[in-house]
Design a binder for these strands. Structure first.
Length: 381
DNA sequence: GGCGGTTAGACTTCGACGTA
DNA sequence: TACGTCGAAGTCTAACCGCC
């Protein structure tokens, strides 16, 4: 009869090896067969219930995007980590876990994607530790909706497992994508952007809503048929993230012309980042008939104290037909900046008698302004 | 179906200026 | 000098949207 190991000895062994001691070769093979994963390409069980594989692509990115709007200044692409999780549900509460994590990184001319797969719950601690090994503190993390979803989920799992959460600098491509394509696409899901903007055809893909059930079905019945589609879905998400980042960078640098995007939104964004190309873009948009672009640019000049440029724009916009915004701004300019109350009054009358009758609310505002101007003129006389 | 980041619009605050 | 008004800037809030 096998002698029971003394408690002290067992505790010492657990401390050294952890709750799940490493598997020997035979055990590994048995488990692969038991999980059915050995039939799937490239997977190795690196810890109990934690599997890993690497997939190599050509690098779709440039060396760096020194004038990037979405990345930190002079960010090198080799320090970027693209990531995406597949989870057991949508809630970021304690009951949801990531069972598959894809991590994309640049290695010289290659874009390598590491996938970590959890074949059962006890492997989670190993998954998180492995993630910690891969994640580097100085890296910049690129995701899609990761700020809201993936990063919270990962942080929650670290906390639940008593692991330290390191701060990660996150670049979420959802928001720049929304700016560029919100008005062009019906929605800005990654799949829609892939299909309609990046021209990527995924082929048969698994809908995200079905993903949790695939994993639960695998846990209960060991079914791996649909699992491969989940792995592919995750790989595609990671690779698309890289293509998307590259495309956004080319668009902001004015290199891409064949892809549709909201030029007004990009102009605003460039101007916000004090990039002169924003001015050119908004001027071009105004010439194409987009008065909103002119309004935005004129307010920018006004804020900068460049009155001449602002006034030129207001006058130019009015040449193209009556434009309430420009006339009102000119009236403000004459009243408050030049103290030319007579000219301001003429402009207010122009709006009141203009081709488009103002709403009662605006009319009240204009009449109030008119009364004030008449008072000031009388005072001056 | 829960969560939370972003955004646009509403609201508030503040400084400049004119008037009594 | 005190008060009122205006426009600009800053702050707040509600709605939207994408993740599985």
């Amino acid at each position: 009869m096998k002698r029971r190991e003394a408690l002290g000895g067992r505790l010492a062994r657990l401390k050294k090896e952890g709750l799940n001691p490493p598997l020997n070769e035979k055990e590994t093979k048995n488990r692969q067969e038991a999980f059915g994963l050995s039939r799937l390409e490239g997977w190795t069980e690196i810890n109990p219930c934690l599997w890993r594989r690497s997939v190599r692509y050509d690098n779709p990115l440039d060396e760096s995007y020194s004038r990037s709007l979405v990345l930190p200044a002079d960010q090198l692409v080799k320090e970027l980590i693209f990531y995406d999780t597949e989870t057991t549900g949508l809630s970021t509460g304690a009951g949801t876990i990531p069972f598959l994590i894809g991590i994309g990184m640049i290695h010289k001319e290659y874009f390598d994607v590491i996938q970590l797969f959890l074949s059962d719950y006890p492997g989670e601690i190993h998954l998180l530790k492995e993630l910690n090994n891969i994640f580097q503190e100085e890296a910049v993390y690129v995701s899609y909706n990761g700020k809201t979803y993936d990063s919270h989920l990962i942080n929650t799992r670290f906390l639940m497992n008593g692991l330290k959460v390191n701060h990660r600098f996150e670049v979420d491509l959802l928001y720049p994508s929304r700016r560029l394509w919100k008005k062009i696409l019906t929605d800005c899901r990654l799949g829609s952007i892939e299909k309609d903007i990046l021209g990527i055809n995924r082929g048969p893909d698994i809908p995200g809503a079905e993903i949790p059930d695939v994993w639960f079905d695998f846990l209960k019945n060991g079914k791996t048929e649909k699992l491969e589609r989940v792995f592919s879905h995750n790989l595609q998400d990671i690779y698309s993230l890289a293509i998307l980042l590259h495309t956004i960078e080319l668009i902001t640098d004015g290199i891409v012309t064949h892809i549709p995007y909201d030029r007004f939104a990009l102009g605003k964004l460039l101007l916000f980042h004090k990039r002169d190309e924003g001015i050119e873009l908004l001027e071009r948009e105004l010439k194409r008939g987009n008065r909103k672009a002119g309004e935005f640019l004129s307010l920018y000049w006004k804020r900068m104290g460049e009155w001449e440029k602002a006034v030129d724009l207001w006058k130019e916009m009015n040449k193209r037909g009556f434009h309430y915004f420009s006339v009102e701004e000119l009236a403000k300019y004459y009243e408050h900046h030049l103290k030319d109350y007579g000219e301001a009054l003429k402009l207010i009358d122009k709006i009141l008698k203009g081709p488009v009758p103002p709403s009662p609310e605006i009319k009240d505002k204009l009449l109030h302004r008119k009364k004030r101007l008449i008072g000031r003129l009388a005072q001056r006389d």
